[in-house]
């Protein structure tokens, strides 16, 4: 009896193991087939459920389904499918939304929403000159008879800002009447750099903004607001007023930096509304392997507003049409005058 029982056990083991690889295939749901229809529906649904700004941007995503669904057919080429899906995503009017394939990248160019509010040639020729300093990603020098420190910061993604760089800037400009940080056409980068740059004029803990994460399929399903604060530190900070220069090309991390300045009385924004992009994008993959990204968080400023479409400046100043002829950057001039008031 015992031998029979043992044989049954051994036979069961052999059979179970033999079929183990098949078992997992039964338990795993089959992969979605790679067809133009499935890729379209998958992407549409991902945006429908997870994108953070459908309601804010008043996008009727259901009607988008109908419009772009009609353009999908089973025999369309990869190129055609990419164009349809990319165009569908561009209906979101969001610089943080992209579709990536090995042969193309879809994007929505937010900088085209406003004028380029900077002329780099004028800044080099008439403000920085030839003997300006380059400290890390900062290009800087004295302007306005050395009363103002001018710091050009063109990207948050060049490198991580170091304490040494900040200490140097602070030491060099500590006796000036005011500081200009120029982030016009700065398309963003590492959010960490936002907080490092803020530490140039902030060493106390204060609320900078709040953030929420999309956590459900409904348009209004968001996590509880979570506060983001500046760090308390013993570092010395710049004691004068600070002007931040912005335009539509100031996007993503630049908008985060801009929205943070609302928490400081001595810091003000001059220029054009930023490009926005205050939602953090995350990525995913389609059944055909293409990857995409779109925003899944939203940011609420200290005044309770959502500036996803752009952070408005305290003083709206657009670069003069005759800047080329006069060689004057009226945005810098305005900021300087305000700092010297």
């Amino acid at each position: 009896m015992k031998t029979k029982y043992q044989n049954i056990i051994l036979a069961t083991i052999v059979i179970c193991l033999g079929f183990s690889t098949s078992c997992e295939k039964i338990a795993f749901e089959k992969e979605i087939k790679n067809t133009p229809e499935s890729n379209f529906f998958y992407l549409w649904n991902e945006v429908n459920e997870r994108y953070a700004f459908l309601e804010y941007k008043e996008v009727n995503w259901d009607s988008i389904y109908n419009v772009y669904g009609e353009k999908i057919n089973h025999d369309m080429s990869e190129d055609s499918l990419f164009i349809v899906l990319g165009s569908m995503l561009n209906e979101l009017r969001d610089g943080h939304v992209n579709l990536f394939s090995s042969f193309n990248l879809s994007r929505y160019d937010i900088t085209l929403l406003g004028p380029v509010n900077i002329n780099n040639r004028i800044i080099k020729e008439n403000y920085l000159g030839t003997d300006y300093y380059t400290t890390g990603a900062f290009v800087h020098d004295f302007i306005s008879d050395s009363q103002i420190g001018y710091i050009r910061y063109s990207s948050f993604s060049n490198s991580m800002i170091t304490n040494n760089e900040l200490d140097y800037l602070l030491e060099r400009y500590k006796n000036t009447e005011g500081l200009i940080i120029d982030i016009r056409q700065n398309g963003g980068g590492y959010v960490d750099n936002v907080f490092r740059l803020i530490s140039l004029f902030s060493n106390d803990e204060r609320l900078l903004y709040s953030t929420q994460i999309k956590d459900g399929a409904d348009e209004n399903d968001f996590s509880l607001l979570e506060e983001v604060k500046s760090e308390k530190s013993g570092r010395e900070t710049y004691q004068g007023k600070v002007a931040i220069l912005t335009d539509r090309g100031s996007y993503s991390a630049s908008s985060f930096f801009s929205v943070c300045t609302y928490a400081y009385e001595d810091v003000f924004l001059v220029g054009d509304t930023t490009g926005g992009g205050l939602g953090l994008p995350n990525g995913g993959q389609l059944p055909n392997g293409w990857t995409y990204r779109f925003s899944i968080t939203r940011t609420i400023a200290v005044n309770g507003e959502n500036y996803e479409s752009g952070v408005p400046p305290n003083y709206t100043i657009i670069l003069s049409d005759d800047a080329d002829e006069t060689g004057i950057d009226n945005v810098i001039e305005f900021a300087s005058a305000k700092l010297l008031e």
Binding site: V191, E226, E227, V228, L280, N282, I296
Partner: peptide, 18 residues
């Protein structure tokens, strides 16, 4: 990751937001 995964870019106190 819950419904969405914003990675570590939110700068909140939460170690793994979402």
């Amino acid at each position: 990751p819950g419904f969405t995964n914003p990675g570590n870019a939110t700068q909140t106190e939460t170690l793994l937001p979402g």
